Each structure stands twice: as structure tokens, then as C-alpha cells.
Computed example of a mutant assay.
Amino acid sequence: MNEISNALGVPGTGGGDAAASKDSLGETFDDFLTLLTTQLQYQDPLSPMDSTQFTEQLVHFTNVEQGIAQNEKLEELLAQNSFNTTAQAVGFIGKEVEMFGEFVVVGDGGPDDMSVMSYGLARDASETTIKIFDDSGEVVRELIGKTAAGAHELNWDGRDENGIAVPPGIYAIEVEAVGSNDEPIGTAGRTEAVVQAVSTNNGRTFLDIGGIDIPLEDVIAIRQQPEEGSTETAN
């Protein structure tokens, strides 16, 4: 009986695709039964097969089959949960979301169609420098930032060093702050942008904000966009 157990690799129940594991188990069990009946047919009458070992082998296969069935149910629940999350996230389309990140999305409308970014300083700084990079890693603009501790909105007009409006795209922001002794001061950025689409990948839900896919779990706030004609403005 040991040679049967050793010769047949019983598929595990952890990870992988449950349906594939179930198919593999079926093939393995068929092979097991073939070997078992052959061994029973040619066993030594004076040394019959150990019935306890035989029972243990059958119980082992049954436990594996039950484990795979549980995995199938778990996969169904996870798929349903992913679908429900995505369905709820569809309601975010057209709304403004806030997330951690240091970048600005410039839309087709140029400087009048930009996401909003804010940066925070852990404490007062003697100097704060802000660099804006295009998708090729080139600096398109360098600004002098606020030095007081706390949060500040990035005051960028969407133009490069020559005053020319930058093309639509995603622009990375680098904030560097130093103290009176030139020691670095911690900074953190937040970006606000409008959700344009929703997608899923490997069970995770992503929000498309101007070409960037943001994981739903990275969103820290969701707001309705100001109505047209509102006096609320953003720099």
C-alpha cells in the first residue's frame, strides 16, 4: 500500500485553481483505484493487505476532496465580493477622490483641466523646493514651496519654465524641505482627481484618474464635484 501512496502525488488544497485541483484529484483517484485493484488481484493470500492502511488511504483522498470543495466555495465568495466591490466603485465615476501620492494629472483642457495636489511638512522648514517632472523624467518646472509646518496646496499653473502650457499627461511632483541646519524634513503628498473609469485585476478594484489606475484601498476621501457656477475654486 505504501508504494501506491508514494507513487501517486495527491494534489494539495492550498492556493492554485480549485477546479484544476479537482480534475487532478479525479485523475489521481482513478489511477489509485487501478493500482489498488491490481494489487488486490495479485496480493499474497498468506499476507493480505492491511485493511487499516487501506481505509486510511481512502479517508485521505476523501479529506483532500472535501478541502478542494471548500476552496471552490471560497473562490466563488471571493469572486462575488470582487464583483460587489467593483459594482459599488462604479458609483465613484465622475466624483473627485483624494489619495496619497505626489503627482498631478493634466487633462486635455491644459492648465484649466488639472488635478489638485497638496503637500505636508512635518515641521517648519527654512527652505522648500518643488520639482515637477514629465513622463520622461525631465524637470519641466521648479517652484519655491511653503515652509510652515502643515498642509499646503501646490500652486502650479500648468506651465513650464518658459511659460508654455505643458501637454496633457501625468506629472510627478518632488517636494524637498530642509531645516535651518540643512537637515531633511519629512514631507507627504495627496492628490485629488476625478474618477473616469473603474476596472478590476486579480480580484482588486482600480479607479482610473486620467490614465493612472489607483487601487481602491488607496483612496482616503470621495467628494461630489462642485457644480458649474460654484464660487469654489482651486489653484
Rank of each mutant, 00 (worst) to 15 (best):
K146F: 02
N235Q: 11
T34P: 09
T34A: 14
S230M: 00
G107V: 01
I93C: 00
F92C: 03
V198R: 09
V90Y: 12
P111V: 06
P184R: 08
I185W: 01
D218I: 00
R204W: 03
G145I: 08
L216P: 05
P215L: 08
E217D: 15
A149Q: 15
I4C: 13
V195A: 12
G137N: 08
A193P: 02
P48E: 08
T85F: 07
E232N: 07
T233Y: 02
H152T: 07
T34E: 13
A148C: 00
T38V: 03
G14I: 12
N63E: 07
T62F: 02
E142Y: 07
D44Y: 05
I68S: 01
V198C: 09
D112G: 14
E138A: 14
H152E: 03
E65V: 00
T62V: 01
S180F: 01
G101T: 05
I170W: 04
T13N: 05
A20V: 15
S21T: 06
A7S: 12
H152G: 05
E75S: 07
G91K: 04
T85Y: 03
E102L: 11
I173A: 05
G109Q: 09
F133A: 04
Q53E: 06
E192H: 13
F83C: 03
Q43A: 02
D112N: 15
E96V: 10
F61C: 02
P48C: 11
T86H: 14
S24T: 12
G186H: 07
G91Q: 10
G101N: 10
D135C: 00
A79F: 11
G210V: 03
S21M: 11
E76T: 13
T13I: 09
N235L: 02
A197K: 04
A188Y: 06
M114D: 08
A149D: 10
L58C: 02
D113Y: 01
T55Y: 09
L36S: 13
T62S: 12
E176D: 11
E232T: 13
A193R: 08
E217K: 15
V178H: 01
